[in-house]
């Protein structure tokens, strides 16, 4: 028996030319390249944050959050856009989550590989890639004009419905992905003890898929509140000095509205320096809302996974 030679440099009489040195070199090249790619993203993000914070942080105050926008830049606050964004968020969530999750469950668990499901799947994929301004144009006609008696025209309800439409494909896809990740054995186990399809989905599959659905949904909503184009298309206003009333709700839903990205867009396009600074502060508020939502998604997912095991 010949002794095993484990030293890479020495010539061994063999058909294998393992050439480890060269392979390790490629490894290092790849890792370095990937690291640089990561760094580029991080550095750009840090620069943007730094720039915004430098201008905006001194402007942030309780007054900024509790005052309405104003023609006088120094007194302008962000109350109505912030509240408008929260209204939009709630409406979008209430409309898009039940419909999106329901459609996802149907397509994945009940219509699985039927022709209908395949046709719908391709179309949902396409819908997710449609530019948001197109949704705005559709919404302008359907929600603002055709459904005017219900929505009240250019209202916060129209805005919420528009954003719901926009994120519906994302929620459906996220739901399907989460359901697909549930092991097939769980479904089989359910069927084998005499449960119906819906019972298996309700009692076994959905609880397992829930954290994934939740994360996908919250990320979709985060995208919704950052949208500007479709809201401008349906005619969100940029100067609102009142809040939609909660009572009666019907009136609140049908109020004109504005939202954070729209207010920011408006301020940025003003020539005065003071409005630019207000915009920077507005961006910080918007980012705070987004980060809060994403953090909630991560926290809820981890918490649910912990409680399950």
């Amino acid at each position: 028996m010949t002794p095993l030679n484990l030293k890479p440099d020495e010539q061994v009489d063999s058909y294998f030319d393992s050439n480890l040195a060269k392979r390790y070199w490629f490894d290092r090249v790849f890792v370095s390249t990937a690291f640089i790619c990561t760094l580029v993203g991080l550095v750009i993000l840090a620069l943007l944050l730094f720039d915004v914070c430098k201008d905006g942080l001194p402007r942030l105050s309780i007054d900024f959050l509790t005052h309405y926008p104003s023609r006088r830049a120094g007194q302008a606050g962000i109350l109505s856009p912030l509240v408008g964004t929260i209204w939009l968020l709630v409406i979008t969530a209430l409309v898009a989550i039940p419909i999106g999750v329901g459609a996802g469950i149907f397509l994945e668990e009940f219509a699985a590989s039927s022709l209908l499901a395949k046709v719908i799947e391709v179309n949902i994929g396409n819908l997710a890639a449609v530019p948001s301004i197109i949704y705005g144009l559709l919404a302008l006609h359907v929600f603002v004009r055709l459904m005017n008696p219900i929505t009240g025209g250019r209202s916060v309800l129209s805005g919420g419905l528009t954003l719901a439409l926009l994120v519906l494909p994302i929620i459906i896809v996220a739901t399907r992905e989460a359901l697909r990740a549930v092991p097939e054995g769980i479904r089989q186990a359910g069927y084998a003890i005499g449960t119906t399809r819906w019972q298996v989905v309700r009692d076994q599959v959905l609880p397992i898929a829930f954290p994934g659905i939740l994360t996908g949904t919250i990320l979709a909503l985060s995208r919704a509140i950052g949208e500007t184009a479709p809201l401008i298309t349906i005619g969100a206003l940029t100067f609102i000095a009142f809040l939609p009333p909660l009572v009666p709700l019907t009136e609140g839903l049908r109020s004109p509205f504005t939202a954070l990205p729209i207010q920011i867009y408006n301020w940025v396009s003003r020539p005065q320096e003071a409005f630019q600074i207000a915009a920077a502060a507005g961006i910080i508020v918007l980012m705070a809302v987004l980060i809060t939502m994403n953090a909630t998604a991560v926290y809820l997912r981890n918490w649910l996974q912990r409680t399950r095991n």
């Binding site: 092991p183 089989q188 186990a189 069927y191 084998a192 003890i193 005499g194 095991n309």
Partner: peptide, 19 residues
């Protein structure tokens, strides 16, 4: 078929308890 599966049980290749 649901009634059939209640009266004829099954155990699978890979253990698949519910979580």
């Amino acid at each position: 078929p649901v009634e059939v599966r209640r009266r004829i049980g099954m155990v699978f290749q890979v253990p698949n308890p519910f979580p």
